[in-house]
Design a protein around this nucleic acid. Structure first.
Length: 421
DNA sequence: CTATAACTCTCAA
DNA sequence: CTAACGTTGAGAGTTATAG
């Protein structure tokens, strides 16, 4: 088996640069929702030592000093750029797994092994030319190794010009390379595992690869055992070409300011629910249960803290926003306690099943508003999200998240394109 | 007791 | 001018509960 992992470089920043070349060569960050934390950094920012996830307000002084430009995340733009990139990449193999917004695996089974690195170069060059985005390519025998090869390509530890093929490296070459990489770079090894493994004297990828799987299985988990096997070139993780339906659907957000009243929480929860239900119908599912939760700001030690969720089993599985909204607001009313500064709320759709056979309720005879939902979804798809909505979502929405530094939706909205100078 | 549900922890992008 | 720290999803393992 041979597989490639193609990953965009500083993906969000690169998307912004495609449409605003003035950002080229300058230190740029993209912020998370609500302009909260750094979620993408240009090479210049990484060189300044700015860590992923740094809260923006903590960075302000340093940003002024070094002229760091900060942008709110523009998901409409990134999603559109992503789908362009994925369709170019998809033309290079019959097997593609889209793993996230900025990366995908390509299956290279049956391709001539000696030519894969050159093939990787062509991919890189074409994505750059056709979509404008820089990517790196890692090629190896398993997905875990391909991820690692991609890391090597990005850091210039092996391979050349953004492409690294482990398949063409000798055993001693691999040993020397893996001995220089920390275990934290391995797919599936996060902060906690790095800590625990380090305590057992395992710090390099080579050590992890050569560790005893039986012991690891016993003292850690199957997951780590599989990771180690993958590092040895034994495939344990399949390429998943068709994305399976979600088992749960979540919509949650922090507010742009504190919210105190049940009225405003109602609007927010109704809005989040509408979005979640849209996703639910899009994948053709029904929800058998729903959870609503609210919380105050855990980072503010001056405020009294409150955090609670309530899971509500539904008498009958449904995808009807009207029914779901009623249930969600009922749950919220149970949860709500006055006197707190709420910072975030969320809705979760659970116990999902196939919507194959629409049916009325045996006891109440209730029928879902399927036609109404279809109309709403069509209108909103054609004219933009939120064109048609239930009154419960409110109009003012003064609690909506901050996005003070957002670039225009260059590729998906004519009106915003007109803003471009 | 077992089977399952519910919840917690970890990881990823 | 101020205050200000993300979202979504999966899977494994553990604990609680029902029968």
């Amino acid at each position: 088996m041979s597989v490639a992992l193609i990953d965009g470089n500083n993906f969000y920043v690169s998307c912004e640069r495609v449409f605003n070349p003035a950002l080229e060569g300058r230190p740029v960050v993209v912020l998370s929702n609500n302009d909260g934390c750094v979620v993408a950094r240009s090479a210049e920012v990484k060189a300044l030592g700015v860590k992923m996830g740094t809260p923006w307000f903590q960075l302000k002084d340093q940003a002024r000093k070094h002229g760091i430009l900060a942008l709110s995340s523009n998901y409409a733009l990134y999603a559109d750029m992503s789908s362009r990139m994925m369709s170019v990449l998809g033309s290079y193999s019959p097997q593609q797994e889209i793993y996230s917004i900025d990366e995908c695996f390509l299956g290279f089974d049956g391709f001539p092994p000696a030519e894969l690195a050159a093939y990787g170069q062509r991919i890189r060059q074409q994505v750059k030319q056709w979509v404008g985005l820089p990517v790196c390519v890692g090629i190896a025998a398993t997905k875990t190794l391909a991820k690692l090869a991609n890391h090597c390509a990005k850091k210039n530890l092996a391979g050349r010009e953004g492409v690294c093929d482990f398949g063409r490296m000798s055993v001693p070459q691999m040993d020397a390379l893996l001995d220089r990489i920390g275990i934290g770079e391995v797919w599936g090894v996060g902060r906690r595992l790095t800590e625990k493994l380090t305590r057992r004297g395992i710090t390099t990828v080579k050590q992890l690869r050569d560790a005893d799987t039986k012991t690891l299985r016993r003292e850690f988990s199957v997951v780590l055992e599989r990771t180690v096997l993958e590092l040895r070139g034994i495939a344990c993780v399949e390429l998943e070409e068709a994305a399976p339906n979600k088992q749960q659907i979540i919509c949650s957000r922090s507010f742009g300011r504190y919210v105190y009243s049940l009225d405003e929480l109602n609007e927010a929860v109704a809005g989040y629910l509408a979005r979640a239900a849209e996703k639910l119908r899009y994948q053709g599912s029904l929800a058998g249960a729903l959870q609503v939760y609210v919380r105050t700001n855990p980072f503010n030690p001056d405020h009294p803290q409150y955090q609670r969720g309530l899971t509500l089993p539904l008498p009958q599985a449904t995808s009807d926003s009207v029914v779901l909204t009623r249930a969600a607001l009922w749950a919220l009313k149970r949860l709500y306690k006055p006197g707190y500064a709420y910072q975030k709320a969320g809705v979760m759709l659970l116990d999902l099943s196939d919507a194959a056979t629409p049916q009325g309720c045996l006891f109440t005879g209730h029928r879902d508003n399927t036609t109404l939902m279809q109309v709403m979804d069509r209108v909103n798809r054609q004219w933009g999200r939120g064109t048609l909505k239930l009154a419960a979502e409110g109009v003012q929405q003064g609690w909506r998240m901050r996005r003070q530094r957002m670039s225009p939706a260059y590729t998906t909205n004519w009106n915003e394109l007109a803003r471009v100078r």
